Amino acid sequence: MKIKVVSPHPQQAETLADLVRQSDSGLDVVSASGAPADLPLVVNGSRPALLVIEGVDLAGLEAIERLALLHPDVDTLVISDDASPAFLLQAMRSGVREVLPAPINAQALQAAVRRTVRKRAAPAQARLGQVLAFVASKGGSGATFLATSLASCLAARSDLQVAVLDLNLQFGDAALFLSDARPVSNVAEVARNIARLDAELLRSAMLPVRDNLMVLPAPDDLAHAFEVKASHVGAIIKQARSIFDFVVIDVGRSMDALTLQALDLADRIFPVVQLTLPHIRDAKRLRDLFRSLGYPASKIHWLVNRHEKSGEITVEALESTLGATVFKAIPNHYGAVAGAVNQGVPIDRLARHSPVTKALQDIARHLAPPPAAAPKERWLGLFGGR
């Protein structure tokens, strides 16, 4: 694999090249001196598979972006002393694979090079994750809360990788239900870079909630929501399911081409309804839409939210009206739910013993049954062993 290391200082360029060579003896590494703005001259037709560029600022990113448009097959690692969110976001837009802080740490540089080498030599075995789409039968039904909370319950299993995609593009706030951290990107930003979409770009655009749970937020600016097309949504979902075990989508309520694309790609659709007449009326409309789209009954899993056993309308009455079975009734536990929403902490972490948490954990176990214990573990369990 051919790698070119570029620095404004010739001696530093060769020092960095030596570090890169130590990461893999099979690499063809050369150094060059020059400013990032001179990249077309520095590359000079050599077409390396990887560029490692030191001393990059915002102006340098513009040159990298121009080079990426000409040579999209060339990966770029940047070394910079600018670690601001604005710089990192612009780096992602410019096609940079990874940004490393200056002064460079040898181990960090070599690890980044090895990651790129592995990616180009043998792509990781793709997953075929399950896509779960949550749709509200009516505004305020709690679909976003249930989608994000179920994702958290699934991620409680450390062997599962879980993603949340907020496709309620105009008014989505799924990220707020999971974290108080500020996102660096969103669905619209990924859509703008759809030609370069791969696993690394998607992960870099997502907000990490914990090691195995990430969320791709909706755009903050309402105007940016209109830039996202159905083809973008399809590409993002397909990429997400190739790297995550579960992709949980909050689709909002607008039944447009984007929403239908998400519903078409979903393995399971969870319409969320409350036991009031306005919700049930809209639930019937959703049912009719699903039937007109040819979705099989096995794809639709009705959820009743804020269920009160003493309510005037029963689950059985809803089932009779819809001609379908309710998959799960989520109990009403206002205090715990309000606390989780207000603090931006998933309910399974804030109120572990809430009946809402237990209901969501039941759904998570249904979707991802825990692995069976080995025979030795079962025998030890009989005697209280460990």
Score class of each variant (00 low, 15 high):
12 Q>T: 03
12 Q>G: 00
13 A>C: 07
18 D>H: 12
18 D>A: 13
23 S>D: 04
23 S>E: 02
30 V>A: 09
35 A>Q: 04
43 V>A: 02
45 G>S: 05
50 L>T: 03
51 L>I: 04
53 I>Q: 05
58 L>P: 00
60 G>D: 01
70 L>V: 05
81 D>Q: 15
81 D>E: 14
88 L>T: 07
92 M>W: 07
95 G>K: 07
97 R>Q: 12
99 V>I: 13
104 I>L: 14
106 A>D: 13
106 A>W: 01
111 A>S: 09
115 R>M: 05
116 T>K: 06
116 T>S: 14
128 L>E: 12
137 S>A: 15
142 G>L: 02
143 A>S: 15
149 S>R: 11
150 L>R: 12
151 A>K: 09
152 S>F: 12
154 L>K: 10
164 V>L: 15
165 L>I: 13
167 L>V: 15
170 Q>A: 10
174 A>H: 00
187 V>G: 07
189 E>M: 03
191 A>H: 01
192 R>S: 13
206 M>C: 14
207 L>F: 03
216 L>P: 09
217 P>F: 08
226 F>H: 10
228 V>H: 07
236 I>F: 02
237 I>Q: 07
244 F>A: 03
249 I>A: 01
253 R>E: 02
258 L>I: 03
263 L>N: 08
270 F>G: 09
274 Q>C: 10
275 L>F: 02
277 L>A: 08
278 P>N: 07
278 P>R: 09
280 I>S: 01
283 A>S: 05
283 A>D: 03
286 L>W: 11
288 D>P: 00
293 L>V: 00
298 S>P: 02
298 S>H: 12
303 L>H: 07
304 V>L: 01
313 I>F: 05
322 L>H: 06
332 N>D: 08
335 G>N: 08
337 V>E: 06
343 Q>I: 05
348 D>Y: 10
350 L>V: 12
360 L>M: 15
365 R>Y: 07
365 R>N: 14
374 A>G: 10
377 E>T: 11
381 G>D: 15
